[in-house]
Amino acid sequence: MSSSAPCVLLAPDKFKASASAAAVVAALADGVRHSAPGSVVIGRPIADGGDGTVDVLLHGGYRPMGVPAADVLGRPRVTVVATRGGLAVIELASTCGLAQLGSRREPLRATSLGLGVALREVLAAGFRDVVLGLGGSASTDGGLGLLTAMGARGLDVRGRVVPPDGAGLLRLTDLDVSGIDLPVGVRIRLACDVVSPMHGPAGAATVFGPQKGASPTEVASLDAALVRLAGVLRERCGADPAQTPGAGAAGAVAGAAIAALGAEVVDGAVFVLTATGFDEALATADLVVTGEGSWDAQSLLGKGPGEVVRRARQAGVPAVVVAGQIDAGSLDGTGVVMGVSLAEVAGSVDRAIVDVLPLLRGAGVAVGELLLRDR
C-alpha cells in the first residue's frame, strides 16, 4: 500500500431479491468510511448482462431512453435502454424477463418478442451499435419472438404463421427471413455469461427449461424443436448457430440472433467492467471488494464478481468477497484475502435477506479495518 490515503474499490453485483448493486455499494461505503474515515472510496457497481445491467450503466454515466417494447407475454410496455453516443444497451430481463412473472411460469407462452421490439426501436432511432443483455430470460422460444419483431415469420408444416413463443416454436418447420432488413453498418452484440449450445444435453431447453417451468415432456419437445430450428436457420440464413458457444443463451435467442442478425456473443461481465471504467479504477486501488447474493464455484465462471477477482489478482490488488452466502471451499485458491458471509454473521439466510443493508454496512466496517491494517 502507498503512504497516501488508502483507496478501496467497491465493485459488487446485485444481491438478488435483496439489494441493487448500487445499494450494495452505498452500504459498504458507509461502513468503510466509518472505520477508515480518511480513505478514498470508489464505487463501480457491476453486472454481467442480466438483471441490473442497465441500472449499472446508468449509474456509470450512460443516459436513459424509454422505448416501446413488449412484456414476457407479448403485451405492450415501455422499457429503459442505456445509451452513450451511438451505443444502446437493451436488457432482456427488464424487458421480457422471468422476474416479470413472479412465482408464475409460462414455458410455452413466454416470448422474446419484447426484446425484438426494443431492438427495432433503437435501430429506428439511429443507433448502430447495440448490446443485448441476455440474462434472466423467461422463454424458450428459440428467438422466434425476437426475429418476428424484426420482420421474420415462423411457419408451420402447412405454411401458416405460428405465434412468436414457445408453443409456436414447437410447430415451426420453416422461417421466412425476407422481411428482416437491418440498416447498413449495424453491430449487434449479445452480452451473457452462458456458453451453452442451442440444443442437446447442455442446451437451452435441457439446462434452463425446468427453471422456466417446463415439464420433462415439454423440455424434450422444446429441445427437439430447437434442433429443427437450428437446421432451418442454417438453411435460410447460411449460418449454423448450433456450432457457436453461447448460442443457447436466453432460450436460444442468441442462436437466432447469430444466424439471422449477424450478432456476436460477448462476455457480459467483461463488457460491463470495460464500459464502466473498472480497470482505470483498479489501477488506483489498494483493495477491491466484490460480491453477490450467493458465491460458489460457479461465480468464477463468467460471472461479474469472478471477473473482478480475476482482474484484481492479475493486477496484484488484494480482493475481498462479501456475499449473502459463501460455499465452503469456494474461495480456496482465488487469492481472496477475506470472505464475509452475511448469512453466517446474521445466523440465517432469512435474517441476512431482511437485514441486508445493515449487514453490508458491518461488512464495510470490516473492510475499512482491513484497509488500514499494517499501514
Rank of each mutant, 00 (worst) to 15 (best):
P6G: 01
L9N: 03
A11Q: 15
A11K: 12
F15T: 02
A21C: 05
A27Q: 09
L28H: 04
A29H: 02
V32Q: 10
A36K: 07
V41L: 04
G43C: 06
D55Y: 00
L57K: 04
G61D: 03
G66F: 00
G66N: 15
V67M: 12
P68V: 11
V72S: 04
R75E: 13
P76W: 01
T79V: 12
V81M: 11
L87D: 15
I90P: 08
E91I: 09
A93G: 07
C96V: 13
A99I: 13
Q100P: 09
Q100W: 11
Q100I: 13
L108Y: 05
G116C: 07
G116P: 09
G116E: 09
A118C: 07
A118H: 12
V122S: 10
F127V: 13
V130D: 13
L132T: 03
G145S: 10
G145C: 09
L146A: 05
G151Q: 13
G151Y: 03
L155I: 04
G166T: 03
L175T: 03
L182D: 14
P183D: 08
P183Y: 07
R187W: 06
I188V: 15
L190N: 09
C192K: 02
V195L: 00
V195W: 00
M198I: 11
A202K: 09
G209N: 14
Q211P: 11
S215M: 12
T217A: 15
A220R: 15
D223R: 13
A224T: 15
L233T: 04
R234W: 03
A239G: 02
T244E: 10
G246H: 00
A247M: 05
A252R: 09
A256F: 05
A256N: 10
A260R: 09
E264W: 02
G268W: 02
V270P: 01
F271Q: 06
T274F: 01
G277I: 00
V288E: 06
V289N: 01
L300H: 01
G302S: 01
G302D: 03
K303S: 00
E307L: 07
E307H: 05
E307N: 07
R310Y: 02
A315H: 12
P318W: 12
A323W: 00
G324L: 09
Q325N: 02
I326M: 01
I326C: 02
A328H: 11
G329Y: 00
V336S: 05
V340W: 08
S341E: 09
A343T: 13
S348V: 10
I353A: 11
D355E: 13
L359C: 08
L370A: 00
L370K: 07
L371Y: 00
